[in-house]
């Protein structure tokens, strides 16, 4: 968000943030960050971040400054090639900014060890091709990796967490099925379950529904909404404005690596902004209190 937008958003979710520890519930509940001041800080922040993939290469992101309020659901919206995935990889720590800084819960990202960072920030990738046919339960259990040493094996407590996570996303009945035999939506839910087992408070998701049919899309969105209600911070990328409209509290609108707007969903998803971003006639209407984006024929 812009600084102002972030403040507003932070106010909106302040009650969630303060109660983080209680809201999650169960063993998979959100672990409170250390120190009250951290709870007040935005979950994620990019400050004057630019990124290029190599010397002389064009900038993929330029002067990006956004804040993501704790406990909010934020959509990073833009057309193909706008820099959404790069932004997500920067938030994940997979890429280092060429200039500027990334902050996680008020601390510079580079202050975290990789393991500590993965306990705070989890990833739900666009798709997760699994080379070997792990069962759904074995796959979800991989989320314990940040909590286990190099030579450790997961124990009964880890297994119980995985079973609980599968229950949360509605995959208990499929726990012995091989992951490659799942439908697209079920596979995405299994990936979300793995992120729950990881117990990260921030969830990054890259185009979570891009290859799913409407029924599976709804399944995944319901789970993401549930996570948002529980106080987890969710950031997802999408090229579909209606997906952003469906569940996001805030939207970051990207075009050619620059932030065009970053504010509440209603503020960003306007006819003028979207028409300018996508270079085509777009109308935004209200349906059941949510914006609905309709392209002109």
């Amino acid at each position: 968000m812009s600084a102002k937008g972030a403040d507003n958003a932070a106010d909106n979710v302040a009650h969630n943030a303060a109660d983080n520890a209680q809201i999650g519930g169960g063993a998979l509940g959100i672990a409170p960050a250390v120190g009250a001041w951290v709870v007040r800080a935005p979950a994620l922040a990019l400050r004057d971040v630019s990124f290029t993939y190599g010397p002389g290469a064009p900038a993929v992101l330029s002067d990006v400054s956004i804040e993501v309020a704790t406990g909010s659901i934020t959509a990073v919206l833009g057309s193909n090639g706008s820099g959404k995935t790069t932004l997500l990889r920067l938030l994940l720590g997979l890429l280092k900014p060429t200039t500027g800084t990334v902050e996680v819960e008020g601390r510079p990202q580079h202050d975290y060890s990789r393991r500590d960072l993965s306990r705070r920030v989890g990833l739900v990738p666009q798709s997760e091709p699994v080379a070997f046919e792990l069962s759904v339960l074995e796959f979800a259990l991989l989320g314990r990796a940040p909590h286990l040493g190099l030579l450790d094996q997961p124990g009964p407590a880890d297994r119980a967490l995985a079973i609980e996570a599968l229950d949360r996303v509605g995959l208990t009945a499929l726990q012995h099925r091989a992951v490659p035999t799942l439908s697209g939506g079920e596979a995405q839910l299994a990936t979300i379950a793995r992120a729950l087992v990881q117990q990260s408070v921030i969830l990054l998701s890259d185009e979570p529904t891009s290859h799913l049919d409407p029924a599976n899309t709804r399944l995944v969105l319901d789970v993401l909404r549930m996570l948002g209600r529980e106080g987890r911070t969710v950031v997802f990328t999408t090229h579909d404005p209606n997906l952003a409209a469906a569940i996001a509290d805030q939207v970051v609108l990207l075009k050619q690596g620059r932030v065009l707007a970053a504010a509440s969903t209603a503020e960003v998803l306007t006819t003028e902004r979207l028409s300018a971003t996508y270079g085509m006639g777009i109308e935004v209407i209200q349906l059941r209190g949510r914006p609905l984006v309709v392209p002109h024929s």
């Binding site: 990889r89 994940l92 720590g93 997979l94 990789r114 393991r115 960072l117 993965s118 306990r119 920030v121 989890g122 990833l123 990738p125 997760e128 091709p129 699994v130 991989l142 989320g143 990796a145 940040p146 990881q198 990054l204």
Partner: peptide, 10 residues
């Protein structure tokens, strides 16, 4: 798992 996912798992 893929590099990106393995990285996200610490």
């Amino acid at each position: 798992l893929r590099d990106e996912t393995a990285f996200s798992l610490g």
